[in-house]
């Protein structure tokens, strides 16, 4: 399955469906989808790195925590991510390195505030030919 993401519609908000040959790449694409909703990714440079380690109760929970982490780093610590490397993704654990920089309203083309990542129609599917994940955001 090809790597990529697309934006899903919801009456009030937005979702992301991401695919990839494995779960790692689908999780990475979901994160890139989230970032693309917040900011124009082309305006962000990978100037500093942050390591992220997360634990979840299952793959769905881990996906929500993963995207919530990226959202928190943006909204709480003013760190916007452009490049993602997922080093390890097990059933309930994720290790990643995020590269990006401090938010600068003059440099980064900020698009929209995302309030939170929801469990609404959350999906993590491992199929024979790859993985599909989908998640809805509260805008």
């Amino acid at each position: 399955m090809d790597e990529g993401y697309r934006i899903l519609e919801h009456p009030a908000d937005m979702g992301i469906e991401a695919t990839g040959p494995d779960l790692k790449s689908a999780f990475k694409q979901a994160a890139l989808g989230l970032i693309s909703i917040i900011v124009d990714p082309a305006s962000v440079e990978p100037r500093e790195q942050k390591a992220v380690t997360l634990h979840g109760t299952d793959a769905e929970n881990l996906l929500v925590k993963w995207l919530s982490e990226i959202l928190y780093l943006y909204d709480g610590e003013d760190f916007v991510t452009s490049t993602i490397t997922i080093k390890k993704l097990a059933a309930t654990e994720l290790d990643a390195v995020l590269a990006g920089e401090t938010v600068d309203g003059n440099k980064h083309r900020l698009k929209m505030d995302v309030k939170a990542i929801t469990y609404h129609q959350l999906k993590v599917e491992e199929r024979q030919n790859g993985c599909v994940v989908s998640v809805f955001l509260d805008i």
Binding site: T57, D75, K115, A116, I117, H120
Partner: peptide
């Protein structure tokens, strides 16, 4: 603003974990 959004995000996790203890089952994780 972000403060309220994060409170809800945090407590969704806390409540999901605690539900097992209280033997509550739900039809939608949200």
């Amino acid at each position: 603003r972000g403060l309220g959004h994060q409170v809800c995000t945090d407590y969704l996790e806390i409540m999901q974990d605690a539900m097992r203890k209280y033997k509550i089952t739900i039809v939608d994780r949200q």
